[in-house]
Write a protein that binds this DNA or RNA. Structure first.
Length: 438
RNA sequence: GUCCCCAUCGUCUAGCCCGGUCAGGACACUACCCUUUCACGGUAAGAACCGGGGUUCGAAUCCCCGUGGGGACGCCA
């Protein structure tokens, strides 16, 4: 059994979107599963619509997702070059072969391929037997001399010895053109595997680059975890059949196979992605999470007033890790740790002032704050219990006003955790300020 | 319009190939528990086999026809 060779062949004519990423992922998974070769090939035959910026987006997105290629731009390989714009001489050789066998003709300056008109049958690894007959001759070289997609795609698959063509179902109808060409070249057919499409989450049709949430770079910018996105994406059109969902990548590689891919299209669900992202965020070791969160905060300008003390920042981030569902929630969730002029939430204030005498409770906290042991949540809890029992009150009578006083909000980490991380001086200043609130 | 693909909870899916289980899990939604906050977590509830024929003792599962959804019909890829 010869080695599996698959390729991902994006065209740098648009942004890199969810559907492309999933196609790349399925190819990559299959290559890794079979210990085969994952080739990156750039289909840049349409000179009008290409741009280097789009090319860079493809490289960046693939790298960010962790989809490393074994052959392709930047890494080389024996079947290069891997940009179609650099492969003209190869196309000319193959074209000469077609001309020699009488399979081409010129019309209006373009080169047409003469089809056989025979029924084209493929055994799709996902859909089974699919039969279609190509009806018309089609253009393989434009009148400007540039070869078109159908030709170069097939030539490259032959020249690069691609064994499995894993691509979106939108190519299924094109396949009869491609098999006509494979046969005209006398080349064996690769195994085709047409994967289901990703449908936009609202409204009809497949997801396109203009749809909300379609662009990979957007998830990157917003601080999504690539491992979560990869895990989510692999579940769109495939499942491990054992009810597992959050799986480490090696496990996915082990279980992934073509016959397990579904035949029906899948609708994109951002809520499930968000849930997956949260699961990964919460499961992340603190030592991994802190630098990640820090770079996200720096990138989004959260520290415009200067970088905070790194040990303090670490404490804050560790305290809030399980309180946020995504990195995007981080800036508002931690802002009060880094500024004294934080706002007091009106609703929270109304709620707390509507019951009991919060200022009196805060005065009682201040009275013994100097004796409080800030070294751990447990010692602070012991201190608070002491305060409460001395005044015949509940700890909750202090916790809620206390949290509001030091954070301005009624939700967040534990009272003890906030106090511990803020430290005695900050807490004292904020409690005192609270007493002068209108 | 022609051709191709598909069809299980609102969504992602298991089950289908090899007919017989209260049709299972997850997201979302709801309730409760936990937490004297908010999340997380836990428990529970509701929620689906597109319709019609056939084959069969028996059909989500096999076959046919509808219907619905998706895709392709470019000198785009």
């Amino acid at each position: 059994m010869s080695q599996v060779r698959v390729r991902f062949a994006p065209s740098p004519t648009g942004f890199f979107h969810i559907g492309s990423a999933r196609t790349a992922l399925f190819n990559w998974l299959y290559a890794r599963h079979t210990q085969g070769v994952f080739i990156l090939r750039i289909e840049d035959t349409d000179k009008e619509r290409n741009s280097d910026e789009f090319l860079r987006v493809i490289y960046d997105s693939l790298k960010w997702l962790g989809l490393d290629w074994d052959e392709g731009p930047g890494v080389g390989g024996g079947a290069g070059p891997y940009r179609q714009s650099e492969r003209s001489s190869i196309y000319q050789e193959y074209l000469a072969q077609l001309r020699k066998t009488g399979r081409t003709y010129e019309k209006d300056g373009a080169t047409y391929f003469r089809i056989s008109g025979e029924s084209q049958i493929i055994e799709d690894a996902i859909r089974g037997r699919v039969e279609r007959t190509e009806e018309k001759d089609f253009v393989i070289v434009r009148s400007d001399g540039n070869p078109v997609f159908h030709l170069v795609n097939v030539v490259d698959d032959i020249a690069m010895r691609v064994t499995h063509v894993i691509r979106g179902e939108d190519h299924l109808s094109n396949t009869s053109k491609h098999t006509e060409l494979f046969r005209a070249f006398g080349a064996p057919l690769p195994v085709f595997a047409h994967i289901p499409l990703i449908l936009k989450q609202n409204g009809p049709g497949k997801m396109s680059k203009r749809d909300q949430g379609a662009l990979i770079e957007e998830y990157q910018r917003r601080g999504f975890l690539p491992e979560a996105l990869v895990n989510f994406l692999c579940l769109l059109g495939w499942s491990p059949k054992n009810d597992a969902e959050k799986m480490p990548l090696p496990e996915i590689v082990k279980l992934f196979d073509l016959p397990g891919v579904n035949q029906s299209n899948a609708r994109f669900d951002e809520k499930k992605l968000a849930h997956m992202n949260m699961a990964y965020l919460h499961a992340m070791p603190v030592d991994h999470y802190v630098p990640l969160a820090t770079s996200y905060l720096k990138r989004t300008g959260a520290f415009s007033g200067g970088d905070p003390d790194s040990a303090y920042l670490r404490e804050v981030l560790a305290l809030c890790q399980v309180k946020v569902r995504s990195l995007e929630e981080l800036p508002p969730a931690i802002q009060y740790f880094f500024r004294e002029d934080f706002a007091t939430d009106v609703k929270a204030k109304e709620k707390i002032f509507g019951k009991g005498d919060p200022k009196a409770r805060v005065r009682e906290l201040l009275a013994t704050l100097a004796q409080a042991d800030f070294s751990s949540d447990a010692t602070l809890e012991a201190w608070l219990h002491g305060v409460a029992s001395r005044h015949g009150a509940q700890t909750a009578d202090y916790i809620h006003p206390g949290r509001l006083a030091v954070s301005g909000v009624s939700a967040g980490p534990s009272f003890y955790g906030i106090f511990r991380v803020l430290g005695r001086e900050r807490v004292q200043r904020r409690l005192e300020r609270f007493l002068s609130l209108d």
